[in-house]
Nucleic acid binder design. Structure first.
Lengths: 106, 106
DNA sequence: CAATATACCTTATCTGTCAAGGTATATTAG
DNA sequence: CTAATATACCTTGACAGATAAGGTATATTG
């Protein structure tokens, strides 16, 4: 069984930030990690991922820089900011509250 | 603390069906119940609610009829169908899987 | 008689996601 | 050597669910 995108909507940013909490990373790697962690049950669409990066960077929650490695395709790395860490923590709290509420309602 | 609409998106239909699993009801009552159950932390927008009713009825998961009471404003009652019950059960499973996945990812 | 609560509805707009398209480099298989 | 695959990023237009803002109508309460 797989899940619909609407289940994840609203969590995309938090998922990305969670990954960046463990160190800098780049789009392709983050998405592969999501796929692995969920045993192929979920994966972000390319466009969704890069769109979320733009939003997060605009809001000042992440910053980006081009990777310096000379092998393979170029990579744009992302790093979480202090504001991003605060935002992440707030989102975790919101998720815990959401779980409670939905469990009460359905 | 309150939660964002995107947290609930994708669960609106299930929340409505959950209420109807306990008996026929109407829009205004369902929304009041949501507000009470969540201690004013969540409430559906009118338009969201009625929009979801249309979808659910189109898909054959609920059926509707005008209430017969002669006091107060007219009410459109909704009743869950057998297909709706199946759909509800499937959604509960999906929610349990979603919780697992998101907890793994964030 | 005005204000409030009940009860439903429509329309235009917003936002995150997705499908479908694209570019470019490195590695692997035949 | 060359074709296929994996890596890696990006843009555009469209879609669907949610929202704000508007509306109608009745019953109750002060």
């Amino acid at each position: 069984m797989s899940i619909r995108a609407d289940m994840i909507r609203g969590h995309t940013e938090t998922i990305i930030l969670a990954h960046l909490m463990k160190g800098n990373s780049y789009g392709y790697e983050i998405n592969k990690s999501i796929k692995e962690k969920t045993n192929d049950k979920y994966e972000l669409n390319d466009a969704t991922l890069y769109c979320a990066f733009r939003r997060l960077e605009e809001m000042g929650y992440i910053s980006s820089f081009w990777g310096e490695g000379n092998s393979g395709a170029r990579r744009r790395y992302y790093s979480i900011t202090n504001e991003g860490i605060e935002f992440y923590k707030k989102n975790i709290e919101e998720w815990n509250l959401t779980k409670e509420l939905i469990d009460k309602l359905i």
